[in-house]
Amino acid sequence: MIRVQAGDFDIGAEIAALTKGKTHIGGVVSFTGLVRDFAGDAAVSTMTLEHYPGMTERMLADIEAEANRRWPLDASLIVHRHGPLRPGDNIVLVITASAHRQAAFEAAEFLVDWLKTKAPFWKREAGPDGDRWVDPKDVDDVAAARWHK
């Protein structure tokens, strides 16, 4: 499942809902991305996430489907927020569940790496030194490239 929303999410409640009744699941991995209060040397007071409604949902669904093709997952979830966020706020949640832990760990890492390079979101950071659009990080492209095989 995928969701794009302005509101916050409750990690515990999401895991409970995703795994409820699926007693063949042996391991659940979750990743939560948070808003940092710094970017390099600059302080960040607000991060605003813009996205492409419609394409965002399609891309997240495609990425999730790819993870399910590559690993034997029993359940998966991607939740990505948009709009204005503050340091400490949740940005993104990825949950993967499988009979064995290795598939869940690998699939979660794959999902996070891919959504950083393929999901149409753009971050704008604001702080005492002004506003700026966040530049993509080369390290994210390198991380995502590991999965091309």
């Binding site: 996205h51 492409y52 959504l115 390079t117 979101f121 753009w122 971050k123 966040v134």
Partner: peptide
């Protein structure tokens, strides 16, 4: 992106299409 799929400079466009332009993505 053309009709919500990533596109290249050579990708075709035609009347009725939805064509989007944006910087490299920075989600996650």
């Amino acid at each position: 992106a053309v009709n919500q799929d990533f596109a290249d400079p050579d990708s075709p466009v035609k009347p009725g299409d939805e064509v989007a332009f944006f910087p490299p993505v920075t989600g996650g």
